[in-house]
Design a protein around this nucleic acid. Structure first.
Lengths: 170, 170
DNA sequence: CACAGCGCCTTGACACTGTCAAGCAAATCC
DNA sequence: GGATTTGCTTGACAGTGTCAAGGCGCTGTG
């Protein structure tokens, strides 16, 4: 049984069993609305962690990724809805502004490391985005409540240093 | 409605509606058995792509990751069961040998790039593992059948070159 | 050979799910 | 003031996983 159910949400809200389906236009609509709100909190978390990290560009990027991972660790139900749930319509105009804001935040934080030729920064930001998302997916993917069996030992900051090894000296 | 259903599997197999649940000990058991078989195919795909890439260590790693991404792209239902489905028991002794084989394959392919101090290779293999998994998750995550809205433009090989920029000259 | 044990499946039921059609009451609009 | 829209309720339906009970045939044993 899924963790979120239209009928249980209705019972908790004290309305009839079909009210949520009517209000949100079915289960996909409810999940899409949840994803939109979650992306908002997600972007807020990353932004706060990044600005709290001070002025150094690399420290800001580490902070941003820490915010990413903190969100995935603390709200991994929302994380699942945002990135995995097949029911949500990720092109919904109520959702795209917030997901775009999260992505642009990462893009902006990667900008100080852009290479002279303009094409390579897309490579770099995609590398960071993929790495932090994969790290989060592999680390915080719960297995019926308990952690994953093959843990990923190193801190993410170590991976980031590895990726930026050639660039940081610039 | 989920894509896989005990009752539809029973109908397709021509048995009674409760036979699969009895045989596999419930839906989690069926999904775990599927995941075990999928990890087998997954490891085979990566191994074949890696050995087909020739003797150069970096080419072999690119090949392995191409195999990873090819599998995720072609069998993303299996990919979902392997890494996402909350019902599968990823510590099941029928599953762990195959998932471990896949991981050790990646580990072995990263070994030629290990640093002199023995701890850093875990960082490197975790970086590759996270990056390729995140890239696959973000790229091939279907949205009701159609591709994701925010596509990741660069090829994965470019990301890998970025990660190994400081090492390849060795 | 007879028979108990057992593995594999079937049958039937139960609680629960999302979705839909019909209806109803209140607010809104012309 | 009547028509229309909006938001919810009610009731039904098909479909789901799971469980208990039972049957049927094989197997091993006396």
């Amino acid at each position: 049984m899924p963790a979120l159910t239209l009928r249980r949400a209705a019972a908790r809200a004290g309305v009839s069993h079909a009210a949520p389906a009517h209000h949100f236009d079915g289960l996909p609509g409810l999940l899409t609305a949840i994803a939109a709100r979650a992306f908002q909190i997600f972007a807020d978390t990353m932004e706060a962690a990044s600005t709290a990290a001070g002025p150094d560009p690399f420290a800001r990027l580490v902070g941003l990724c820490d915010g990413y991972l903190a969100f995935a660790s603390q709200h991994h139900g929302l994380f699942h809805v945002m990135f995995v749930s097949p029911e949500v319509d990720r092109d919904d105009p109520a959702l795209t502004p917030h997901s775009a804001r999260a992505y642009l935040l990462l893009r902006a934080t990667c900008l100080p490391f852009a290479a002279p030729d303009a094409t390579e920064d897309a490579v770099l930001e995609t590398a960071v985005w993929s790495m932090v998302h994969g790290y989060a997916s592999l680390t915080f993917n719960t297995n019926q409540g308990k952690r994953r069996s093959y843990v990923l030992a190193p801190d993410f900051a170590a991976l980031l240093k590895e990726l930026f090894a050639a660039r940081r000296g610039q």
